[in-house]
């Protein structure tokens, strides 16, 4: 056995290590937390292109503000402990046999419990306002009030198709949205599971065969955004992306007319929309069972 450890000096130490750590932590987090919340938080994506994106940035900023003091505490604690409590060179000496302190335990449980409950409550509040841009399934619970512009997103291997029921069932492979409008996205798939991710808009909703997954997003000023698939869906999944645009209402009408003209020759073969007196568009599709790809 390598050197029987000798007994430690009596545990009573005059220096108040705990007080020093707490003071250093208070000072550090008092400085760091506002700096992080004010300067770092707003830099976090996805940005300011939609109400949902802005809310996500707000949400991320708050979470950063909550975890910054936690990080500060651990940094201060470890920096202090690892520097102050190094073993002296030479033989192995045991430390004081401190086995427990129920005050510390209770304090720790209260602190972590409060942080957790705050984060869960805050997240739930943010979520229930309008769904935060996430897919909510066929029966959404967080539905924003007011008029909504419907767009259907149909994922298939390996592209997205966008359908506009209010434009007579117009289908397009470009996603063009009117500015300052609440959009209701109905996401479904023809085959594997895809995920519709409009990055700058802060929208993500999985596209499942046979399921209508609804997400809400409120556009702001005209802008462009990226759309990509965020769920591995087979061989060409990485190339399943395109760009979308948010445009003025007048430009949107122009684009719609243009598209209708472009697709005029195939229009008679497509379903009529509900507003034209036809049957409603199917919001779900089932995959071909025998189809193999990828």
């Amino acid at each position: 056995m390598a050197g029987q450890p000798s007994a430690a000096s009596p545990p009573a130490e005059s220096t108040s290590h705990g007080l020093r750590v707490v003071l250093a932590w208070l000072i550090l987090s008092a400085v760091a937390t506002p700096l992080v919340a004010i300067y770092v938080g707003p830099l976090i994506p996805p940005g300011n292109a939609s109400t949902q994106a802005t809310e996500q940035v707000f949400d991320n900023t708050w979470m950063l503000a909550v975890i910054t003091p936690v990080i500060c505490f651990l940094v201060v604690f470890f920096a202090y402990a690892l520097l102050s409590f190094r073993a002296a060179p030479g033989g192995v000496v045991d430390g004081p046999p401190l086995r427990n302190d129920s005050r510390v335990q209770v304090l720790w449980m209260i602190a972590t419990g409060l942080i957790v409950l705050f984060l869960a409550g805050f997240g739930t509040y943010e979520l229930l306002q309008n769904g935060a841009g996430g897919g909510q399934g066929p029966d959404p619970i967080a539905v924003p009030s007011g008029q909504k512009f419907q767009v259907q997103v149909i994922g298939q291997q390996w592209q997205f198709t966008y359908r506009y029921p209010s434009l007579g069932g117009l289908e397009s492979n470009q996603l063009v949205l009117p500015a300052h409008t609440y959009i209701e996205l109905n996401v479904t798939s023809l085959d594997a599971v895809h995920s519709f991710w409009a990055y700058e808009l802060g929208v993500k909703a999985d596209a499942n065969p046979g399921v209508n997954n609804v997400a809400y997003v409120q556009t702001k000023d005209p802008t462009t955004f990226h759309v990509r698939c965020a769920e591995l869906c087979g061989l060409w999944h990485p190339y399943m992306f395109n760009n979308g645009r948010v445009v003025d209402t007048s430009q949107f009408q122009k684009w719609a007319t243009q598209q209708e003209h472009l697709y005029a020759s195939i229009k008679p073969f497509m379903d009529k929309s509900e507003s034209d007196g036809g049957a409603p568009y199917s919001k779900t599709y089932f995959p071909q069972p025998d189809r193999r790809a990828g």
């Binding site: 996500q56 949400d59 979470m63 997240g123 943010e126 935060a132 841009g133 996430g134 990055y199």
Partner: peptide, 8 residues
């Protein structure tokens, strides 16, 4: 774990 942030 926070749904609004998880969306991105």
């Amino acid at each position: 774990s926070d749904v609004p942030s998880d969306v991105t």
